[in-house]
Computed example of a mutant assay.
Amino acid sequence: MVYGNDALRRTAAEVLERRRQPILAAYRQRLAAATDDLGGVADLVDSYTTQADVLVRETVVEIGRETTDPLSAPPPTAPAEGVDLHPRECFRAVVALADILLADALEQLCGRPDQGAILALVADALTRTTLTRLLDASSRYAAGLMNEVHQAQIAERSLIARELHDRLGHSLSAAYRNLEAHELAQERHGGDVDRRVVIARESLHDAVGYLRVLIADLRLSQPLGSLDEALANFLSTVETGETRLHTEINGDESWVPPEVLDEVFLVVREALRNAVAHAGARVIHAVVDITPHELRATVVDDGVGFDLAAERDGSGLRAMAERAAAVGGRLAVRAAGRQGVSVELVVPLLAVGAGAGR
């Protein structure tokens, strides 16, 4: 790491600022002459050159900073509109700019006794600035891909929801109404209703109810807005009997991308629904802890538990695990005899860009 004194920093910054336009002109020429995806298109050349200008200006500022601690570096400015480079192409563009910039600085400083020290200051500032910019580009590219995947999932889930509603939902509802009409007809004629018909009708009623919940889950395409409110709304519809149910959310929900928050809600809701329906618990605790780098949600009950080995491949647990994996998280389920069940969801969060879509 080269620190340099104030005079050297001033000289390095002045040289780079004075040569900024010739450097950008040489960079534009190299882009225009490129035959691959880095150049050859006028709009892209303009956009890349604008980005290079920002990068050179940031390097000038970086040279003049008194501290060289990378943790104290300010965030990069917003990228120019129209540039959406893959991180690999972004790296190639930065390397091309650095090559031109350092060669120009070397030529301008030729013969000076302090040439090496000044050039080292320029190279050091350029390295730190470009690494920050590359990290930002990589984070934005990853966020863009994640958003595309999320939009594809929304479209697919909406299609499945429509098919379930229009085909299966219609058939189940028709069968339920026919069985209900059959029971009424039997009662009007004073006949006994076959118990098997009653059981079939009740089963269809439950199936229609489960199908409606499934369709509502599949159509959950808009951001929740608030995990706390969503859980409260869900709990207001649940019959808990004598079971005491406590929920707690700690941390700032804006740190969590909307698509991640959706999946967290669905996993926590399923865990709560299972606990209420099957655990026979006195108390159920649901806690969500959010930090800038991690979300951790736990649902714990003091109920009867279950055989985890026998239920591991059940559709409910499998769906929860798949939702966790879809957002880069992991699900852990612990069930020890009659000592209750613990469900834990852990999702890593990117500090850079977290909450940007809120």
Rank of each mutant, 00 (worst) to 15 (best):
T59M: 01
A281K: 06
D289T: 15
Q222S: 15
L204R: 05
D262N: 08
S226K: 09
L159N: 06
R201P: 00
L214M: 07
R312F: 04
E344Q: 06
Y176R: 15
P79W: 08
L31N: 08
V208F: 02
L164S: 01
T67D: 08
E89D: 14
I215M: 02
D36T: 02
D228F: 00
A34D: 15
S138V: 07
E263V: 10
E311N: 08
R358T: 10
G190E: 11
S138M: 10
T243V: 12
G116I: 11
S203M: 07
D114T: 03
R212W: 06
P292M: 06
L38S: 08
A319T: 08
L106Q: 14
D262T: 13
H278V: 10
G337R: 08
V343R: 02
R65T: 06
A325Q: 12
A96E: 08
A143V: 05
A324V: 01
A356V: 11
S158E: 14
A42H: 11
G116A: 14
P257D: 12
T35V: 14
E107M: 06
L350Y: 01
L220G: 12
A232K: 11
V276N: 11
A105S: 15
S158G: 01
A25R: 15
A286N: 07
P79S: 09
F91K: 14
A25W: 10
R312Y: 01
G353M: 10
A120E: 15
T49C: 09
V300M: 03
L231A: 06
R196Q: 13
R167E: 14
A297P: 02
Q29A: 13
E263K: 15
V149R: 13
Y176I: 01
R57M: 02
R9Q: 05
R196G: 11
P74N: 07
V327N: 03
D313V: 00
L71Y: 05
L245I: 05
A332I: 09
S139E: 15
E14R: 12
E180R: 12
V56F: 07
R177G: 08
R128G: 01
H205K: 13
L8R: 13
P87A: 06
F234T: 02
A356D: 13
V299G: 01
V287E: 05
D289N: 15
G316F: 04
